[in-house]
């Protein structure tokens, strides 16, 4: 018994530094932020008033409230499109590509992952701009007469995001697919299922964990990202991270920025609750 207790004490000693670090630099800042969201700005001074003024403002002032909807709309659009594009790609790599080339195919599929995040958005700005490759080629082959505006619209933001998350989702769905025994598809066919039924009733449900893990990551990273909408989406409609940065930059309004952050976190928590039964976070 004492041996066991000693062992436990020692183990706790191993965990303690990481716990202390996480508490000091993650939990404490979060609590401070939570308290700060209940304060308000008077001139340039932060006054702690313990009221919900900022939250009331977020849900009543159209420019702020719109940010929540813009962020949610973009994030959900991106998540759905990315899953729809990534699933077939992951499936093709897992089933159609010869086994010894699969690792290469997956590495290629996620290669642009390793460009700098800022640079990637910049590259899309180059590609999608009025004089960019896409417009020039479309005009060149006669589909368009003159360039259309994509840059600085929601479309550009969505394209930039989808590019990033197709890679991420291909990875999570692929690793889910190759763990499945080929006998599942054989068993379904054996019992008389055609291709569509095998996909619908067996393979798709079996890849739900991979899809949901990837979709949740997509949601978290997408809704909290500042760079992509800032570089590609312009300032016509602002997402929540853009609004948060605006509060910080223009007026130094930390209380409002904190309140917006808390709302953002609540949205992520709701997304987690919605997908938690399929998530295996340890496997990420």
């Amino acid at each position: 018994m004492t041996m066991e207790r000693q062992e436990k004490q020692r183990s706790f000693g191993f965990v303690a530094p990481a716990l202390i670090w996480t508490c000091a630099f993650f939990i404490v800042p979060f609590v401070v932020m939570l308290l700060l969201s209940l304060a308000h700005l008077e001139g340039r001074e932060i006054v702690q008033s313990f009221d919900l003024g900022n939250y009331v403002k977020i849900f009543t002032e159209p420019s702020l409230l719109k940010g929540i909807f813009v962020s949610l709309e973009i994030t959900l659009t991106v998540t759905v499109i990315s899953v729809l594009l990534a699933w077939p790609l992951a499936w093709i790599i897992a089933t159609q590509v010869p086994e010894r080339y699969q690792r290469l195919a997956i590495m290629l599929a996620v290669l642009p992952f390793w460009t700098s995040y800022v640079v990637r958005s910049y590259a899309w700005a180059l590609v999608l701009g009025q004089n960019g490759v896409v417009m020039q080629s479309l005009i060149g082959i006669g589909i368009l007469d003159e360039p259309i505006q994509i840059m600085a619209t929601r479309g550009a933001t969505v394209i930039g995001f989808v590019h990033f998350f197709v890679m991420l989702l291909t990875l999570t769905i692929y690793s889910n697919l190759i763990q499945l025994s080929p006998n599942y598809a054989r068993a379904a066919a054996d019992l008389g299922a055609n291709g569509w039924n095998t996909f619908r009733l067996v393979i798709l449900p079996l890849t739900l964990p991979g899809i949901m893990t990837g979709a949740f990551l997509t949601f978290v990273l997408c809704i909290g990202d500042y760079i992509t909408p800032q570089i590609l989406g312009g300032n016509n409609e602002l997402t929540m991270p853009q609004l948060i940065m605006l509060q910080l930059g223009r007026r130094g309004d930390f209380p409002m920025a904190s309140a917006l952050s808390v709302v953002l976190m609540v949205l992520v928590t709701l997304a987690y609750a919605a997908s938690s039964r399929w998530l295996k976070m340890e496997r990420v």
Partner: peptide
């Protein structure tokens, strides 16, 4: 099948 391939869901 050897691994039974029962549909887990």
């Amino acid at each position: 099948f050897q691994d039974y391939a029962l549909f887990p869901h």
